[in-house]
């Protein structure tokens, strides 16, 4: 087993993750097609994309659960293809399912995961206790994992992912399916880990989560990265923009052309569920817009101001409606 002390120190200029030309095909489906990106040490990097975009396939290749057809992966300077086990020692992985052992207690699960990294008993016990305390699970330490609530399971799975104090933590949809309070707690824990110096690679379909946590984001669609940038740069085009969202009684797309022709200083996006989004460099003329829509024989159910967000950028870049993305993801077995 390679000694993690022999790996490069955490604070160097070598990227935490460097990926070049990464490709993977499953039969006739090109799941990932020549993906390139770098993640700096200590960075919080988000990987956003719709279902089937290639997020999980990419994360599986980065962690060693899938073999790339082509391309290179370097983890903290370690070539994954040549030294996969040395690279695995440097990373922690939290998959999209809480996959600990239901028949073991929370404490036993953490001790077992620590043993997988060769930690001696005294250190294992201390580290497991420390993490249970940190994740607010001390009271549940002696309860079987199978009896934990969803939120508790997620927290313990993240604790297991960092048991060996990895340099890089991969998180695949960490808050999916959790209630608001649990999701909030987990986001706080992840933010704390990042503040403590851990490089974080996060895949999520919650765009507001990525916007709140990440420093840089890559958008992946159909196995290709179509944009990688910092949150600030991504939001730059929206500076000073104002957005109104109208809800009408029928498919908003039927009105989009007429609206664009009548209001040439506004940009419109319309959706099948009756939403119409109007964007302007200055104030959006709400009254004329409502009157125009109603003149077309369509009732306006609601009009509300919207804060321009990363979601707007996501829709513009990918052409995918975020609600559709979320609905798709929440289908059983829906995991990109």
């Amino acid at each position: 087993m390679s000694n993690p002390d022999k790996a490069e120190p955490r604070y160097t200029t070598t990227p935490a993750i460097a990926v070049e030309g990464l490709s993977k095909r499953f039969g006739s489906v090109q799941a990932v097609a020549g993906v390139d990106f770098e993640v700096s040490r200590g960075e919080f990097f988000g990987f956003l994309g719709p279902n089937g975009a290639g997020k999980t396939t990419t994360i599986n290749m980065l962690t060693g659960l899938a073999r790339p057809d082509a391309g290179t992966i370097c983890i903290a300077g370690v070539d994954y293809t040549k030294q996969p086990k040395a690279a695995q020692r440097l990373i922690g992985v939290v998959g999209d399912e809480s996959n600990l052992y239901p028949e073991l207690t929370g404490f036993e699960n953490l001790c077992f995961c620590a043993a997988l990294y060769g930690m001696r008993k005294k250190k294992r016990l201390a580290r497991a206790g420390e993490l249970l305390e940190m994740f607010g699970l001390k009271e549940a330490a002696d309860r079987k994992f199978g009896g934990y609530s969803r939120g508790m399971k997620r927290k313990l799975t993240i604790a297991a992912g960092i048991i060996h104090d990895p340099q890089i933590l991969f998180l695949d949809e960490p808050t999916t399916g959790l209630d608001v309070a649990s999701a909030r707690q987990i986001r706080q824990l992840i933010a704390d880990l990042h503040r403590a110096g851990t490089t974080i690679f996060l895949t999520t379909h919650y765009i507001e989560e990525a916007e709140r946590l990440c420093e840089r984001i890559a958008f992946i669609v159909d196995g290709r990265i179509i944009r990688t940038d910092t949150i600030a740069s991504l939001l730059q085009p929206l500076q000073g923009k104002q957005v109104m969202l109208f809800e009408v009684e029928r498919d908003g797309r039927t009105l989009c052309g007429k609206l664009a022709a009548a209001f040439d200083n506004l940009a419109f996006d319309a959706f099948s569920d009756g939403r119409i989004r109007a964007e302007a460099a200055g104030p959006v003329p709400v009254g004329p817009l409502v009157r125009f829509i109603e003149e077309q024989g369509v009732t306006v159910l609601e009009a509300r101001r919207q804060q321009p967000s990363l979601e707007d950028i996501f829709v513009k870049i990918t052409g995918i409606e975020t609600d559709a993305l979320q609905r798709e993801k929440e289908k059983p077995g829906g995991s990109a």
């Binding site: 087993m1 390679s2 962690t63 060693g64 659960l65 086990k85 040395a86 695995q88 020692r89 992985v93 998959g95 399912e97 996959n99 600990l100 052992y101 995961c113 997988l116 990294y117 060769g118 297991a160």
Partner: peptide, 14 residues
């Protein structure tokens, strides 16, 4: 099947 085996595959053990 329940993916706990992935945890072993991800560990640095040959």
């Amino acid at each position: 099947k329940n993916r706990s085996f992935d945890r072993l595959l991800l560990s640095p053990i040959p």
